[in-house]
Deep mutational scan, measured.
Amino acid sequence: VPQRAWTVEQLRSEQLPKKDIIKFLQEHGSDSFLAEHKLLGNIKNVAKTANKDHLVTAYNHLFETKRFK
């Protein structure tokens, strides 16, 4: 089981690129989880459509539901 890579403050910070969060989610989330949160596909394309709040919610949801690969 992966550990949380970032704190809530870090997740919301401008310093953390959306692409980093997407990469983490794609590496650790199950396909059904990723599909549900519309996070499947090319990281660049996902970054265009997903806002930061959406990614933070998905990140927290992944750990709450433990839907890891």
Rank of each mutant, 00 (worst) to 15 (best):
N60R: 06
I22W: 03
T65Y: 15
V8D: 15
T57R: 11
P2H: 07
D31T: 13
H28F: 14
H28E: 05
L40S: 09
N51E: 13
L39Q: 00
P17M: 09
S32D: 12
H54G: 11
L11F: 02
V1W: 14
R67S: 13
N60P: 00
N45C: 15
D31P: 11
K52R: 15
A50G: 05
F24I: 02
K38N: 09
T57P: 02
L40T: 09
K52N: 05
E27G: 07
P2F: 04
I21Q: 01
N45I: 15
E14P: 15
I21E: 01
N60W: 06
N45H: 14
W6H: 09
S13W: 03
A5H: 15
L55N: 00
L39S: 00
W6I: 06
I21W: 01
N51S: 13
Y59G: 01
K44G: 14
V1K: 05
T49K: 09
A35V: 09
K23Y: 06
F24P: 00
A35Y: 13
H37C: 10
H54C: 13
V1L: 12
E64N: 08
A35G: 08
I43Y: 10
Q15R: 08
L34T: 01
V46N: 04
L25D: 00
F68H: 02
F63K: 01
A58R: 01
L25E: 00
K38E: 11
S13Q: 05
K66N: 09
S30P: 03
R12S: 08
N42E: 14
T49R: 13
F68M: 03
K18R: 09
I21D: 00
T7L: 04
A35H: 13
I43S: 07
H37T: 05
F63C: 02
H37P: 00
S13E: 05
L25Y: 00
D20M: 12
E9A: 05
W6C: 14
P2R: 04
L39K: 00
L25Q: 00
T65M: 13
A50V: 15
S13G: 05
F68I: 03
W6T: 06
F24S: 02
K66Y: 09
N51Y: 08
A35N: 09
H54L: 10
Q10D: 14
A58I: 15
H61D: 15
V8C: 14
E64Q: 11
S32N: 09
V56L: 04
L25C: 01
E27M: 11
H28D: 00
K23R: 11
H54M: 13
L40W: 10
K19T: 14
T49N: 09
H61C: 15
V8L: 10
E36H: 09
H61K: 10
R67I: 04
F63A: 01
L16Y: 05
L62C: 02
F33M: 02
T7N: 07
K38I: 04
T7A: 03
F33S: 00
I21L: 05
L39N: 00
A58T: 06
K23M: 10
Q3M: 08
H37F: 15
L34D: 00
A58D: 01
G29M: 01
I21H: 01
N42A: 13
H54D: 15
F63P: 00
T7S: 09
F24Q: 02
D20L: 12
R12E: 13
V46D: 03
K38G: 13
Q3T: 11
Q3P: 09
D31I: 14
G41T: 04
K44Y: 15
K23H: 08
F33V: 01
K48I: 13
S13Y: 03
E64K: 08
S32V: 08
K52Y: 11
G29Y: 01
E36M: 11
Q15P: 04
T65Q: 12
K44S: 14
T57W: 13
V46T: 05
A35M: 12
H28W: 15
K48G: 09
S32H: 07
K44H: 15
V1P: 11
A50C: 12
N51A: 09
L25H: 00
L16G: 02
V8Y: 08
L25I: 07
E36L: 10
L40F: 10
I43Q: 06
L40H: 09
L55T: 02
K48N: 12
L55P: 00
V8E: 15
E14M: 08
R4H: 07
K19V: 13
V46W: 04
K69L: 05
L62T: 00
T57V: 13
L34N: 04
K69S: 07
E64Y: 11
K23C: 10
K44V: 14
V56D: 02
N51Q: 09
K19R: 11
D20G: 04
A50D: 03
E36Y: 12
K66I: 04
L16H: 05
L34Y: 01
A5K: 15
I21K: 00
T7F: 04
I22Y: 03
D53A: 08
K44D: 15
T57Y: 14
L40E: 08
V1C: 15
S30K: 05
P17Q: 12
E64L: 10
Q15C: 12
S13F: 02
E9W: 03
R4I: 05
D31G: 12
E14T: 13
L11Q: 02
L39V: 04
S30E: 10
T57F: 14
L16R: 04
L25N: 00
K23A: 12
A58S: 07
T57N: 11
L11T: 02
N45K: 14
Q26A: 04
R67Y: 05
F68E: 02
E27L: 09
G29K: 00
S32Q: 10
L40Q: 10
N42T: 13
T57Q: 12
K23G: 07
E64A: 09
V8S: 11
T49D: 12
W6N: 05
S30L: 06
V8A: 11
K52A: 04
H54S: 12
N60F: 13
T65H: 14
T49H: 11
R67T: 07
N60S: 09
D31W: 15
R4V: 05
E36N: 06
